[in-house]
Amino acid sequence: MKGFVKFVAAALLASVSATGALAQAKEWKEVRIGTEGAYPPYNNLNAKKELEGFEIDYGNLLCEKMKVKCTWVVQDWDGIIPALLANKYDIIIAGMNATDERKKQVEFTAVYNKTPIWMVGPKATKTNDITPAALKGKAIGAQGSTIHANFLEKFYTGSNPRLYPTQEEANLDLINGRLDYIVADALALSDFLNGKGKDCCKLIAEVPRDAAIHGPGVAGAIRKSDTALKALFDKAIAETLADGSNKKLEEKWFKLAATN
């Protein structure tokens, strides 16, 4: 895996140099970054209403490497792509998976993170069978306008998918017995299981990835016209993969919950 990461990083660096996009990218002096601020440990607003999380630290690190001034803009998830297209900010860094469906509207940077997908339920759940047949009629929660919502709507037509504006609202309904299961990234659900969901809930099973729905991993979303900005971010991402700074931030923020 380490050799693969180095290969990817080298390939990204070579690609940027070959296109000559770096010279154009120097025109970018300031970059506005849109994020949700409600999806820990990727991005979250703390008690002081300050942004924190892996992507906040990582976005700031990328800006340092690019030598540009960056400012953060908080935006509700449902409107996060429309706000980018409306020029409210220049890039989305918000735990967004680079799916083919989203590529119809935006361009993506290189992938900077990929995690498993989990289904979580009450501790009293006696089976880890999460096939559509086994969960027929069950209420399954997910955040709306996400790959997880799309996955439920495609494969779990016999269940009762319930979509929420934020992951936190789905988590609370599971705690309060209004849902049978929830689906999200393993890291987001680990944060939940290590916190508010510690006493009530547990990992049921890992959800199989569907390439068409889930995509290759998490990346930044940019307007299709901003090719120089994409090249700038791609180069910085490649550097963080090569020098280990991406991994250091993952180790700081990502704590998977126990799986037994």
Rank of each mutant, 00 (worst) to 15 (best):
T131Y: 08
P132M: 03
K88D: 13
T227V: 14
G79D: 11
S190A: 12
A9L: 00
M96R: 15
A257P: 09
T115P: 01
N171H: 12
A134G: 10
G137D: 07
L241D: 06
V5T: 10
G197F: 03
K126T: 15
Y112N: 08
P41H: 02
A238H: 03
W77Q: 06
I222F: 11
R209Q: 13
G144Y: 11
N44Y: 14
R178M: 04
K49R: 14
K198T: 08
G37A: 02
E27Q: 13
A139Y: 12
G137F: 05
D210S: 11
A47H: 07
I92E: 09
I130D: 09
E251C: 00
K103I: 01
L51C: 12
D199E: 15
A139R: 15
T166S: 13
F192C: 04
N150H: 13
L229W: 04
I81L: 13
K255L: 01
E251K: 14
A134T: 10
D210I: 07
R223F: 00
K123V: 11
P122F: 02
A188F: 00
D90K: 07
W28R: 08
K196N: 04
K6E: 05
G79M: 03
P116D: 14
T146P: 12
T166N: 09
A231K: 04
V120Y: 03
I140E: 08
K49Y: 04
P116C: 08
T131A: 11
L84D: 12
D185K: 05
L51Q: 12
T227D: 01
M119N: 06
N260E: 12
K202I: 03
E30N: 14
N113G: 04
G3F: 02
V120H: 03
T127Q: 12
S190E: 11
N113V: 03
I92T: 13
K104H: 10
H148Y: 15
T115Y: 03
G34D: 06
K65P: 01
I56R: 04
S145N: 15
A221R: 05
K247H: 06
A170T: 11
K6T: 06
K248Q: 13
H214C: 01
N260R: 10
K252Y: 08
K67P: 00
K88W: 00
G244L: 02
N246V: 00
K69H: 12
A142M: 09
D100Q: 14
S17W: 07
P216A: 04
A139K: 15
K88V: 00
S17D: 11
G53L: 00
L45A: 04
L84P: 13
D210M: 04
M119L: 15
A221K: 06
D234I: 02
V74L: 01
W253D: 05
A83F: 09
A236W: 06
A242E: 08
